[in-house]
Nucleic acid binder design. Structure first.
Length: 275
DNA sequence: ATGTTTGTTCCGAT
DNA sequence: CATCGGAACAAACA
């Protein structure tokens, strides 16, 4: 579930609450495989101090004082919770980190699509290098995005979901950003002009920043909550995602699957660019 | 019972 | 050979 805003929200809260804490003990569920192996994971993490928590694309990285990183990727249904008296029982817990302030961080994952791994400093660099530009990085330019988009031969919606083109977008924010930029999701990347990319990057930044402001999106399944169990409210501010009628022209919103992902767009406000 | 789901990766097809 | 897109991964819900 989590895309960039949700991952960012989690990383910021964890950084605030975990920096400087020591990991006293690590518990891993028998039915779960941490990477590269559960044994190596436990050995690498136990007794280490957490220096900081950062986000890279949709990954959450806990930097330890020996330079090793714990990587969590939440995929569709992963959760990281900081347990206290308010955050109650949680199912599907796979990993528990016991901290020296008496609290614990749990990683749970209902559908097991997520990932927990330890990375060496070199592997951490390699990870970041695999991803496209970070949309919220001020140094990211429309020209960069344009070149990345032009390297793909598919529609713009698929291109935006490719983490090599741009980091951190998922189905919801790609859908909303295309609506704000007035670009039809089926537009071939070959038809995208530099000025479209400029509008698109602005739109991407707008939806991501707004969502971060609202603490991300929590859908009806309640899968996403922050580490203290709090839901996001960006779903009350969706631009087009999940809507029946266009908020701009009130026309009927089109729904279709693009590469298997539910896509919403307004055919009037997001017309196909003809060659 | 069938169809749906916010992500990523692998494999077959092109 | 590179790239695209469907299927698969697994579980809950309507």
């Amino acid at each position: 579930m989590p895309e960039l805003p949700e991952t960012q929200t989690i990383a910021a809260i964890l950084n605030k609450n975990l920096a400087g804490k020591n990991v006293l003990q690590v518990q891993i569920s028998k039915d779960y495989k941490a990477l590269p192996s559960t044994e190596i994971f436990i050995k690498a993490v136990t007794g280490k101090k957490i220096k900081s928590v950062k986000r890279v694309a949709k990954n959450i990285l806990l930097e330890l004082n020996n330079g090793v990183r714990i990587l969590f990727h939440l995929a569709m249904t992963g959760r990281l919770l900081l347990w206290n008296e308010k955050v109650g029982s949680e199912k599907w817990v796979k990993i528990i980190l016991h901290l020296d302030n008496g609290t614990k961080l749990t990683f749970s994952d209902m559908r097991m699509f997520g990932k927990a791994a330890v990375l060496s400093p070199k592997q951490t660099e390699e990870l970041a290098a695999r991803y496209g530009p970070e949309p919220l990085d001020k140094n990211t330019t429309p020209q960069q995005l344009f070149e990345k988009i032009k390297s793909k031969r598919t529609n713009i919606k698929n291109a935006l979901l490719d983490q090599v083109v741009i980091s951190g977008l998922g189905n919801i924010y790609a859908t909303d950003a295309l609506f704000l930029a007035k670009i039809n999701p089926l537009t071939k990347t070959s038809e995208i002009a530099p000025e479209d990319t400029s509008r698109l990057l602005d739109a991407i930044r707008e939806v991501l920043e707004e969502s971060i402001k609202f603490g991300g999106s929590t859908l009806s399944d309640k899968m996403y909550v922050d580490p203290f169990g709090k839901e996001g409210t960006y779903q009350e501010h969706f631009k087009i995602y999940s809507k029946k009628n266009c908020p701009v022209c009130d026309g009927k919103v089109n729904f279709m699957k693009i590469s298997g992902r539910g896509t919403y767009f307004c055919p009037a406000c997001q017309p196909i660019i003809s060659a």
